[in-house]
């Protein structure tokens, strides 16, 4: 009876459609997902929110079999290049953890899924990338 939903990370926006929002340097356009003190590329101080494309392609992956304590394995860790060139790290989901099933360069799209519920019934929503079926 999850009464509310909360994104796993602040840069995941759930409504109206789930997407990521980067902090974009006003001066040089560099994009970041963390809280910034200044721009790591040009030193600029001003940022604006920039929505990140929800589709992209798989640049790299690793299938993690030995994970940290408490982390369910195996899982597929993926580096995705979004359609606008922004690099994102997340799990590759909706695909078996088998290198034969994963092609470098394959098109992917952002998906969301529940990743736990806290003691007050709030549901955590995580994101991942799923292969785009042909």
């Amino acid at each position: 009876m999850a009464s509310e939903r909360i994104p796993l990370v602040a840069y995941l926006v759930l409504e109206p459609e789930p997407h990521l929002v980067a902090q974009q340097c006003v001066r040089c356009g560099a994009r970041f997902f963390d809280r910034r003190n200044a721009c790591g590329s040009c030193g600029g101080r001003d940022f604006e929110p920039a929505p990140v494309a929800v589709t992209g392609h798989l640049r790299a992956f690793s299938i993690v079999h030995r994970a940290a304590p408490g982390v369910t394995a195996p899982f597929v860790s993926a580096i995705v290049e979004a359609g606008d060139g922004t690099t994102v790290r997340a799990n590759l989901v909706e695909v078996p953890p088998d290198p034969a099933e994963i092609q470098l360069g394959m098109p992917v799209r952002l998906v969301t899924y529940p990743a736990g519920t806290d003691s007050e019934g709030t549901e955590c929503i995580a994101f991942g990338f799923a292969p785009v079926s042909a």
């Binding site: 909360i6 994104p7 796993l8 990370v9 602040a10 840069y11 997902f33 963390d34 809280r35 690793s62 993690v64 030995r66 994970a67 940290a68 408490g70 982390v71 369910t72 394995a73 899982f75 860790s77 993926a78 580096i79 790290r89 997340a90 799990n91 990743a115 736990g116 806290d118 955590c124 995580a126 994101f127 991942g128």
Partner: peptide, 16 residues
């Protein structure tokens, strides 16, 4: 810095 509500390791890829 990422405004996360729980550990993201194993959810948003790996840092190991």
């Amino acid at each position: 810095r990422f405004g996360s509500v729980r550990s993201v390791d194993g959810l948003l890829g790996t840092k190991t």
